[in-house]
Amino acid sequence: MLEDEQKLVKQAQDGGVEAFGLLYDHYLPRIYRFVLLKVSHREDAEDLSHQAFLKAWENIEQYDFRGYSFGSWLYRIARNVTIDYYRSAKTEVSTDNIADLIEETVRLDLDLKMEWEELMTGIKQLKEVEQDVLIMRFVEDLSIKETAESIEKSEGAVKLIQHRAINNLKKIVVKKKK
């Protein structure tokens, strides 16, 4: 969580552009990563991340700290934007371009590149909610509570989904290695 986050959010709610800019700088890499791991397409991930932050800026007055953290609120928006993307564009889940995506996203040695390819392909084969929980819990280090707030489920449900997601991902990766 960003230092003085609630103060920045309040300033942004009062129209503070600079405050929202700081929130954007802090959360963009996380939201972008979350979206990219779900859509596996760099340009789409950029568009969807942009849309998520635009919605957040437009509706920031509706955010209320008493409900959940600002980060959870952003992840919730990003999640909804991604769901809408799949619904409206009728986009098929594709794993073809993951290798290219890794190539253009980050410089890695060959072994790690292969590990990433397996992982990202495996994540894509999980259920939507299992993807969300895995990314939020183990890539973004969100707490159980924050994850529950983001996916609008109970903490118990998150623990259960997490357990299933890890098992399913293990099975997929092991199967692929064979």
Partner: peptide, 20 residues
């Protein structure tokens, strides 16, 4: 390790300006 994924600086700047 997937945390190493980051948006390009160029995109981040353009998107930020457009939003603000």
């Amino acid at each position: 390790s997937l945390k190493a994924i980051e948006p390009s600086n160029d995109y981040a700047m353009r998107s930020k300006m457009a939003i603000l």
